[in-house]
Design a protein around this nucleic acid. Structure first.
Length: 552
RNA sequence: UGCCUGAUAGUAUAAUGGUAGUACGACGGUUUUUGGUACCGUUUGUCUAGGUUCGAAUCCUGGUCGGGCAACCA
């Protein structure tokens, strides 16, 4: 455990609270998603923060679904959210729902009405908006603001009893219509929605707003540190006001800057659009920044946790470079992924001095980074091999450490070969490369004394299996699609998915396992797609290898 | 032109009045049967103008720039 990292500002707050004996040193955080979409990498930051904080200070974290708007929420989302959090490696103390507190919150509302701190307003949304004023002009009241407590109680009960249609009335806090903080200008606490709720069914036709549910839920659970993103800063005054008036547990809200990643979008609304308009396959399309998309792409929980650790937590707006995310998954997979050979853009190599029909098994370790290579497997060698088209050049430049007439390379775990000539078709495309091999250079007991700069991967033609390979690139062509002049979808990268229908892969892939990351040597990290079958293997490229070769 | 926030290398993040540091990126080198990895090195920074102080990224004042706020969304 190297805990030398300095504390982020929230950890400092927590440590000070503990030092001061606040809540007897107890730490209880919560992760409060609205079940109206799938979790994305931005949520991962929040999850790591909340669960990480609890873990660090011997506390706990509740999973609470903020399900106060029945028209947008579905059980499907609840299930996916739970699965994603578990997959990331976190365990919540309690699975809770804001909707579990509807009775209590209703009682809270009644309490405020009886104290003259809330009233029923019959105005239309448009009227209310106008009456709220603008940031530079104070709001104005209306006649409903002066209703008697008795009338407010009666009307609110009638709202609950379904006497009024949607939008006919709302319950508002009687606060300060001239407040410089717009959220304090008599905020709406309850609205009428005759809608079926995914958990409470048709029991309610009035639902509390975020501002009259979130802090209340925090207080009910006795959350010590309620951590949310920066855009809730203006809500904090209201959060505190309700808690004060209700004299309930004094949870405190703290805000940090949400994660922004370049070349993607992070809002649920935009992600939903990409799914619904078919720009991507689904929420778990490997190009999506969703947790499920990253999982399908081949990201590991550890790599995402590491990423969240590295980006830090602060109040400053940020734009994180995807290269950091890529660094994290490469770092993880480099240590664990088995190396395999796959030829994505094949060209045939004929070894003219190797007997036709002869076959030879050559051992190759699974992972040179691991102790003992993490085991190994046999590669099958023959006189005809598939190699990568880009590993041969008719007119190689000076620093090209691969094949060209007269050049030598090592075939990984096999022999050094020398290229003598090549064959072209009528269109001028190279179709075959002819080489001879150096028998004394056999991998493992090389007595040839020959030193070559380049080593390339290969797959024996008669032994090769095939697979579909999907190469992914960034979803958008610009760093911040949401911040451009045009609609964000106009910046979609048309080449974000490149499908190779038939790549050649080594025969050991007959045992390929779902959920495991493989390194296709010199090509990148890949993982089996969820639609892959033994008869039709499909690999997703998680990320390329870092490419240090500068092409001229 | 109201209120709330924030500003440290390209990107993030530390330094809590006392040597501006770390990571990623970029660039260069060593090693290498992956142009990968590992290792070593280089590069670039306190938004601005004043003030307080022996000493300011840090405290104070003015300015500049960024983000948020006027949903019966969360």
């Amino acid at each position: 455990m190297s805990e030398e990292r300095s504390l982020n500002f929230i950890e400092e707050i927590v440590e000070e609270d503990i030092r001061n004996g606040k809540h007897a040193g107890r730490v209880l955080t919560r992760f409060p998603p609205e079940p109206n979409g799938y979790l994305h990498i931005g949520h991962a930051k929040s999850i790591c923060l909340n669960f990480g904080l609890a873990h660090r200070y011997n506390g706990q974290t509740n999973l609470r679904f903020d399900d106060t708007n029945p028209t947008k929420e579905e059980t499907e989302y609840v299930d996916s959210i739970k699965a994603d959090i578990k997959w990331l490696g976190f365990e919540w103390a309690n699975e809770l729902y804001a909707s579990d507190y509807f009775d209590i919150i209703y009682a809270f509302a009644l309490t405020l009405i009886r104290e003259g701190l809330a009233y029923v307003d019959d105005s239309t949304p448009e009227e209310i908006a106008i009456q709220k004023g603008t940031p530079t002009e104070p709001g104005t009241g209306n006649q409903y603001r002066n209703r008697s407590i008795e009338e407010n109680v009666r009307l609110f009960e009638e709202m609950k009893d379904g006497k009024y249609p949607d939008g006919a009335k709302v319950l508002r806090a009687k606060l300060d219509l001239a407040s410089p903080n717009m959220h304090m200008r008599d905020p709406i606490m309850y609205r009428i929605k005759h809608a079926h709720h995914h958990r409470t069914g048709d029991k309610w036709c009035i639902y509390p707003m975020y501002d009259f549910a979130h802090g209340q839920s925090d207080a009910i659970e006795e959350i010590t540190h309620s951590i949310c993103t920066l855009e809730f800063i203006p809500h904090r005054a209201l959060y505190d006001w309700f808690i004060e008036q209700l004299e309930i547990f004094p949870s405190k809200q703290y805000e940090f800057a949400r994660l922004n990643l370049n070349y993607t979008v992070m809002s649920k609304r935009k992600l939903l659009q990409l799914v619904e308009e078919g720009h991507v396959e689904d929420w778990d399309d490997p190009r999506m920044p969703t947790i499920s998309g990253l999982r399908r792409r081949g990201y590991t929980p550890a790599s995402i946790r590491e990423f969240c650790e590295r980006i830090g937590v602060a109040k400053r707006e940020n734009m994180i470079d995807v290269s950091l995310l890529e660094f994290c998954i490469r770092e993880d997979l480099n240590k664990t992924a088995w190396r395999r050979m796959a030829v994505l853009d094949p060209i045939k190599m004929v070894i003219t001095d190797y007997p036709e029909g002869q076959t030879e098994a050559l051992y190759s370790e699974n992972n040179p980074e691991a102790e003992g290579g993490d085991g190994g497997r046999d590669l099958h060698f023959s006189n005809e091999l598939w190699i990568e088209r880009e590993d041969f050049m008719e007119e190689p430049p000076k620093k090209f450490f691969r094949l060209g007439v007269g050049l030598m390379v090592r075939l990984k775990s096999a022999y050094i070969v020398k290229c003598h000539n090549f064959v072209k078709d009528a269109n001028g495309n190279v179709t075959e490369i002819h080489c001879t091999h150096i028998p004394e250079s056999k991998s493992g007991n090389d007595t040839s004394g020959i030193h070559v700069k380049g080593t390339i991967h290969w797959v024996s033609v008669p032994h090769a299996k095939t697979a579909e390979v999907r190469l992914y690139d960034r979803l958008f062509q610009v760093e911040d699609p949401s911040n451009e002049d045009n609609d964000f979808k106009e910046y979609l990268n048309p080449n974000s998915l490149h499908i190779i229908p038939k790549a050649y892969i080594e025969s050991d892939f007959a045992n390929a396992e779902t959920g495991k990351g493989y390194q296709f040597m010199r090509k990148g990290y890949f993982t089996l797609d969820k639609h892959s079958t033994p008869d039709h293997l499909i690999f997703n490229r998680t990320v390329t290898l870092k490419d240090g070769w500068v092409k001229k």
